[in-house]
Design a protein around this nucleic acid. Structure first.
Length: 413
RNA sequence: GGAGAGGUGGCUGAGUGGUCGAAAGUAGCGGUUUGCUAAACCGUCGUAGGAGUAAAAUCUUACCGGGGGUUCGAAUCCCCCCCUCUCCGCCA
């Protein structure tokens, strides 16, 4: 949610931003409706003031009672008009995208993201490397067939050493993040509509959400939803910020309309697992902590020994709530290219406005905090480990840092 | 799942139709006193929107879990929902 005052003071700015981000809300109409809303509000409040004044006379002036009764008729009408208009304005405001950082590239999709750097050494093979799906089947550690049998296509099992490796990675990752100052959470894996709305997943990604029948609950698409929602309707002490949170949860996504050639293996699935990074901070510090999250993401991949590149995500590939986003794409030798493993978004005050997460300091300064949401690790990283550390004999070497948690250094068929 | 109790300002807690945006206490803030700390005393102390101002002052609306209703007038009465607590049952 953007500040409606910006719309009042600088509608051209809002209009240009909406246009660039492909938002089709009629900004001129919205601005006009908002103005009318303000006028009506004044009228309604004047009538209420009059009503309140007359009501106080009623005790010893019976005539006032009749006057108020009449007044209430026109008040009721105006209140109804106002409520309708307010709803119309709010519905449009809900769809307005966040503003963009000055250096967000133009572009329509991920092909237009700007590569910032490549890091790590891509492995050289004297054989044809397999992709994670083929490896997973050969090693018996990924089972998509039974995932489909038991649940549906798009679900899968990690099995045996694969499950051990995955759990080891997630546990190790959480330890690393705790070391860097993050507070670990185990969070609900369902959230109510207001929480999804507040984090910007509704209305923008409504078709990605699994809802529970007859309940105001949906399976979370990410623990971002529950971690950011954690502080809804709170005023945080500025001196205590930033709050750096991490959680490890399953993530559920319908992935409606995304079946296709990129869906081989377990890259795009209905349930995956993720260690998430969330930061609540002062507005002037969100740029700094956005980069801090990027460093954390990089540190994890570097320690695992996975080659990657960082891209500055373009307008067309960034969700409406985002102000600026860095994606990290890991190198997948079996796939033969870079693929997204993490994304790191500065949401500025888009979420905190919707969720009403504010700060105040000792001097009495108040405002909405900024939030940053970044991926620590997901199952996709395990896939990257498999593809990068596969050997000619079909085994997969376990990254050094994980061995204390797996208890083995190699996965064999 | 069954029965009961309750949701009021940062916290505790009064308030059952107008004088209540809300007593009192406590925490917080400012000050006086005081070897220091503490205590005592005085003052101050909600949020959001709108009008107004150079900025204030000031005026006004809304808010006592959420929504609706009754009434000239609702924290207070009625209805629905949510949440919390206690007891019983069941249970990873």
């Amino acid at each position: 949610m953007i500040d409606i005052k910006i719309l009042r003071e600088n509608p051209e700015l809002v209009k240009a931003n909406a246009k660039r981000r492909g938002c089709d809300v009629d900004i001129d109409l919205l601005a006009a409706e908002d103005q009318r809303c303000l006028e009506l509000t004044r009228e309604v409040e004047d009538l209420r003031a009059e009503r309140n004044r007359l009501s106080k006379e009623c005790k010893d002036n019976p005539e006032a009672r009749e006057a108020v009764k009449e007044l209430k008729i026109s008040l009721g009408e105006k209140e109804k008009q106002l409520a309708e208009l307010k709803a119309a304005v709010a519905a449009k405001m809900d769809w307005l995208p966040n503003f963009l950082a000055p250096d967000v590239p133009d572009g329509a999709g991920d092909q237009d993201n700007a590569e910032l750097c490549q890091k790590g050494n891509k492995p050289k093979f004297d054989f044809e490397p397999l992709d994670h799906q083929a490896l997973g089947e050969k090693l018996g550690i990924i089972d998509t067939v039974r995932g489909a049998k038991v649940a549906q296509s798009g679900f899968y099992y990690w099995r045996g050493a694969g499950a051990q490796l995955t759990q080891a990675m997630f546990f190790w990752g959480q330890q690393e993040l705790i070391k860097r100052g993050f507070t670990l959470f185990l969070s609900p894996c369902m959230a109510k509509e207001q929480t999804l709305y507040g984090t910007g997943y509704l209305p923008f990604f409504a078709d990605q959400t699994y809802s529970i029948v007859n309940e105001d609950l949906a399976l979370i698409g990410t623990s971002e939803q529950t971690l950011v929602g954690y502080h809804a309707d709170e005023v945080l002490e500025a001196e205590q910020l930033p709050f750096c949170y991490t959680a490890y949860t399953p993530c559920f996504r319908t992935e409606a309309g995304s079946y296709g050639k990129e869906s081989r293996g377990i890259f795009r699935v209905h349930q995956f697992h993720k260690v998430e990074l969330i930061v609540f901070c002062l507005p002037e510090e969100s740029e700094k902590y956005h980069l801090f999250c990027l460093e954390c993401e990089e540190a994890l991949l570097q320690q695992l020994g996975i080659p990657y590149r960082i891209v500055n995500v373009c307008v067309g590939d960034m969700g409406a709530p985002g102000y600026k986003k860095y994606d990290i794409e890991a190198w997948y030798p079996g796939y033969g290219g870079y693929r997204e493993v993490t994304s790191n978004t500065n949401l500025t005050e888009f979420q905190s406005r919707r969720l009403n997460v504010r700060f105040k300091d000792k001097e009495g300064r108040r405002g909405f905090v900024h939030t940053i949401s970044a991926t620590g690790l997901t199952d996709r990283v395990v896939c990257a480990i498999m593809e990068n550390f596969q050997q000619k004999d079909g085994t997969v070497i376990v990254p050094e840092v994980l061995r204390q948690y797996t208890g083995f250094d190699r996965i064999e068929p």
